[in-house]
Each structure stands twice: as structure tokens, then as C-alpha cells.
């Protein structure tokens, strides 16, 4: 495969619930996966198969018990599993974007600034960052009168679109998408598909969870079957 941007090797994830009698919940077993630039891989499998857990491991949000997650960062492959928090923060700032299922609304911060934040974090000046944010919000049909409002009071679909705009604000080389279209109407679903296809043409490597089959078929070029790796079965 040309230029893998993301390589997962023998990843194991288990939860040990110390507060519940030490119950051990195996979730992922020996997951192995490689994603090249320009590829979009859809994680596929029934609820509980570990799709979200895998995505969270990739982003450094969950701590795997074993295995490696190699990410192309600064011209070399860095292992997220072994990386220091300081390095993971740098990877998140410059290399790997993440669109979570729900927006974690920050009180009092206007929608447009939430979208512009990833650009500001890498040193883009306020004006061009807001310009880019405005363009994305417009594309995702968030009316201009809402840009200066904090999204806490927005509807689920509006919050999700703010979240998507934020995820696409910076051209991350790697993107993780956790059900980005779950609360969207057909028109906005198509915008998200277009954003994904444009990112792929730029050479972005994407891993996503798409419950909507049409979106999955339009945006992804292959499915990754989780069933074979789910340890819970």
C-alpha cells in the first residue's frame, strides 16, 4: 500500500472495572489495520463490536493494553500507545483531527470561535481563522445570526454541524469521524459526504463510523469488519 498514514498493529483493549468487583471487559483483540492517504475506511459491525472504542484508542482517548498505533507525524511514524501526553497533544494539534458524536459545548464561547479554535491553536491569525470558520458554517447551513451564539442551546443537528465544521477547519492529514451524520437531514448529509471526498482528494487518511449506509457507500472506499476482532463475543 502506498504511504500508510495510520497503522494499527495487534491492538488490545480491555476494561477492568475496579469499582465493580474487578470485572474484566475485553473489547478489542489483535486489531490490525493500515490506512493510506486518500483512503476512507468505515468501521463496520454491530453495536458493541468496539467501533467507537477503536476510534477512541486511535485518538489517544482510550489507553490500549497492548499493540501499536503508528501515526505519520512530522515525517516519521509515532506510536500513540507509547507516546507521552505532550506528544499526543501535539499530534492532535497538527496531525489528527477528530469529530466526536456530540459537541462538548463550552459555555459562552460563540459557535464561530469553536470552529476557528483548531486554526488558532496552530497560530493562524484571528481574521483568516474566522473567515475559514464562516465559510464552513455557511456550507453546513448554519445561519449567520447564530455564529455569535454559544451552541449550548442549539439543536442536536446544529451542534453536530458546528462539530463537523470544527473538525474540517484545519486540513488535518488524518481524520477520525464518529457518526458525523447521525442527526443530519439529507442536504447536510451530502455536504458532509462532499467534505469527506474533498479531504480524500487532498490525500487525507480517514477512519470513520457511519451508520447511514448511503453515506458509508458514498464516502468510504472500504469497510473494516470489526466482528473478527471483537473480543467480547
Amino acid at each position: 500500500m502506498p504511504h500508510p498514514m495510520l497503522v494499527v498493529e495487534d491492538l488490545e483493549k480491555t476494561f477492568t472495572l475496579h469499582t465493580q468487583g474487578g470485572t474484566v471487559l475485553p473489547v478489542l483483540r489483535q486489531v490490525t489495520l493500515a490506512v493510506a492517504g486518500g483512503e476512507c475506511v468505515a468501521l463496520h459491525g454491530p453495536s458493541g463490536a468496539g467501533k467507537s472504542s477503536l476510534l477512541r484508542c486511535l485518538y489517544g482517548n482510550y489507553l490500549p493494553q497492548a499493540g501499536r498505533i503508528l501515526v505519520a507525524h512530522d515525517g516519521r511514524m509515532v506510536d500513540v500507545v507509547a507516546a507521552t501526553p505532550h506528544t499526543i497533544l501535539d499530534i492532535r494539534r497538527r496531525t489528527m483531527g477528530h469529530v466526536s458524536q456530540f459537541l462538548r459545548a463550552i459555555p459562552r464561547v460563540p459557535a464561530i470561535d469553536i470552529v476557528a479554535e483548531p486554526l488558532r491553536a496552530v497560530g493562524v491569525a484571528a481574521a483568516p481563522a474566522r473567515e475559514r470558520a464562516a465559510a464552513l458554517l455557511t456550507r453546513l447551513h448554519i445561519p449567520e445570526r447564530m455564529w455569535q451564539l454559544a451552541p449550548a442551546t442549539f439543536s442536536g443537528g446544529e451542534q453536530q454541524r458546528v462539530n463537523i465544521a470544527r473538525g474540517f477547519a484545519l486540513d488535518f492529514p488524518i481524520l477520525l469521524l464518529d457518526e458525523p451524520t447521525a442527526a443530519l437531514d439529507a442536504g447536510n448529509r451530502q455536504v458532509v459526504v462532499d467534505l469527506i471526498l474533498e479531504a480524500r482528494r487532498r490525500g487525507v487518511a480517514i477512519v470513520g463510523i457511519f451508520h447511514d449506509r448511503e453515506v458509508r457507500e458514498a464516502a468510504a472506499d472500504r469497510a473494516f469488519e470489526m466482528a473478527a476482532y471483537a473480543a467480547a463475543a
Binding site: 472495572l17 482517548n61 489507553l63
Partner: peptide, 16 residues
């Protein structure tokens, strides 16, 4: 660790 990792996937019994 990372704030979101420690809060979302705490490892130590006391953190849990």
C-alpha cells in the same frame, strides 16, 4: 495522563 484519557478511561481503582 491526558485529561480526557484519564477521565474517560481511568486505570487506577481510585481514579475510577
Amino acid at each position: 495522563g491526558l485529561t480526557d484519557q484519564v477521565l474517560d478511561d481511568p486505570q487506577h481503582p481510585y481514579t475510577q
